[in-house]
Simulated assay, not measured.
Amino acid sequence: MGKKTIRVSDFSGTVLRPEDEVVRIVVLEHPDLVAGPVQLEATPVEVESIDDAALDVAVVEVYDQPDGEPRRVVLTASEFDAMATDTPMAQLLKTAERVRPPKARKSVERLDYGTIEHAGKPHRGRVTEEEARLVREQLDEVNKRLADAGIRQIDPADPEHAARYGFPTAS
């Protein structure tokens, strides 16, 4: 028994043949979107009017609560422009103070190389005595894990590895 997959346009339900051109649309925001962005597929003809239907909008964040989260508001550009009564909005936007995006915090998980699950993995930092001891005492297990992960293995005969992990060197 075999399976046959038939692709259809999410917009019209039309069957898409393998040779048909398909356009991918990612929906980032929509009032009915509850669990984050989704993707849809359609034919180019079905979405050719998407640019014509596009609105000129202003997306603004309103910070009206001290230390609170801002409210994001989308309104037509003309409605937003009308709020500027003294100086035209185009002029205000040219001369307004720039907002720097918040610095992205790197939430890099620090690996503990002093544990058997990470001992021997290549890293720039200093090899602790605990990591070196684990590598020396459990070299076969460490090398198997490294090989399984596609990482270089530790060779006690390699002078660099011997010095890094405290293997005795032949003089």
Rank of each mutant, 00 (worst) to 15 (best):
A53W: 12
E160Y: 09
Y63V: 01
H30R: 14
T95M: 06
R164C: 03
K94Q: 09
I25L: 14
V26K: 15
A82K: 12
A147L: 07
N143R: 10
E79P: 10
T115S: 13
E141P: 04
S107W: 09
V135D: 01
E41H: 10
S9W: 13
T95H: 07
P31E: 04
V57Q: 05
D81E: 05
L55E: 11
A90T: 05
R71H: 04
V38T: 15
Y63K: 05
E19N: 12
T169K: 15
A104Y: 00
F167D: 05
D64I: 11
R98I: 02
V62K: 08
L75V: 06
D32Y: 10
H30D: 09
L146I: 11
A82G: 05
E130T: 13
A170R: 15
H161T: 06
Q65G: 00
P18F: 00
V135S: 03
R24P: 02
R98Y: 03
L92S: 04
S107C: 04
T76M: 13
F11E: 14
K103Y: 00
V38M: 15
P88L: 03
G68S: 11
V57L: 05
G125C: 04
D148N: 01
T5D: 03
P31S: 08
L75R: 07
K106T: 01
H123M: 05
D158F: 03
E21F: 11
G120D: 01
R72M: 00
T76I: 08
R136C: 05
Y165T: 05
T115G: 10
L146P: 11
I50H: 11
S171T: 12
T87P: 00
N143S: 07
G166V: 13
